[in-house]
């Protein structure tokens, strides 16, 4: 890897991805501003992110930046084009355990699910992992159980 990405962000005007990276050999830290072209408030953020990730002029610099992060930056750009404030935009990625996700539309829900997937992927045990057991079981009945506070305001059925 010739370039080590340090930080990545967006610039609204003109719409661009801003990358702070270090040159692996010279150790020099530089800033690269990558204009995001042909991207409107109606565009598909995931395709745009993929296009950028594979762009012949930029892909070497973006090697250490994940597709997910590029998608997130494109969503923030698009939110801005749609008139959302940066604050609103950023909070849409935030997971609030109290929020009723049943009320969200597809895309809003995708943001939350994307966020949840980070933990899922981190804890995921895959079929080709050496310690994978298909019918892995743990008996939790033996552990001492304390009452769950979620049951406290006891309504029907609880």
């Amino acid at each position: 890897m010739r370039f080590q990405a340090k930080r990545c962000g967006v610039q609204f005007n003109p719409p661009s991805i801003v990358l702070i990276y270090e040159h692996t050999e010279t150790k020099k830290v530089r800033k690269r501003i990558i204009p995001v072209r042909n991207f409107s408030k109606y565009s598909d953020y995931s395709m745009a992110a993929e296009r950028l990730k594979n762009h012949p002029r930029h892909r070497d610099y973006l090697e250490a930046v994940s597709q997910n992060q590029l998608e997130k930056l494109h969503i923030i750009l698009r939110d801005h084009m749609q008139g959302r404030s940066l604050e609103q935009s950023l909070s849409s990625f935030h997971l609030d355990p109290e929020e009723n996700l049943n009320k969200l539309d597809d895309e809003e829900l995708a943001r939350k699910k994307g966020r949840m997937d980070e933990l899922f992927e981190k804890n995921r045990r895959r079929k080709d992992d050496p310690d994978f057991v298909y019918d892995f079981e743990v008996d939790f009945n033996k552990t001492t159980q304390e009452k769950c506070s979620w049951d406290e305001e006891s309504d029907d059925g609880f």
């Binding site: 899922f120 804890n123 298909y134 892995f136 743990v138 304390e146 769950c148 979620w150 059925g157 609880f158």
Partner: peptide, 26 residues
């Protein structure tokens, strides 16, 4: 370590599972 009481009255079996690491799913 916590007990979740929903469904106890109705006698519904309860499972602690993880789709990520596979615990008790199968």
């Amino acid at each position: 370590q916590r007990s979740f009481n929903f469904g106890k009255k109705q006698g519904l079996p309860f499972y602690f599972v993880s789709a990520a690491d596979g615990t008790n799913v199968v």
